[in-house]
Amino acid sequence: MSDTLILTPNINGADDFYADLLAAHEGLTKAESDAYNARLLLVLANHIGERAILKQALAAAALNSEEEQS
């Protein structure tokens, strides 16, 4: 596995994935949705595992292009 975060399109069936994501939140209150997002984030982070990638992901999500480089 590469130790560089993938920031180019990588999901097969992007529209379907996005619909799944919205469906998962369907009918949830704001608090339930926040909790769900947090759990999802942790599940995905554990799957990635690699600290270097996780660091890059944390930086990428901050939308701060300088930090993305580091």
């Binding site: 926040d34 909790a35 947090a38 759990r39 984030l41 942790l42 599940v43 554990n46």
Partner: peptide, 15 residues
């Protein structure tokens, strides 16, 4: 929220 997410997950998943 994150702390509670960890605790809720810990009941179901070892990770």
């Amino acid at each position: 929220v994150l702390r509670d997410a960890v605790l809720d997950l810990s009941e179901h998943h070892e990770f």
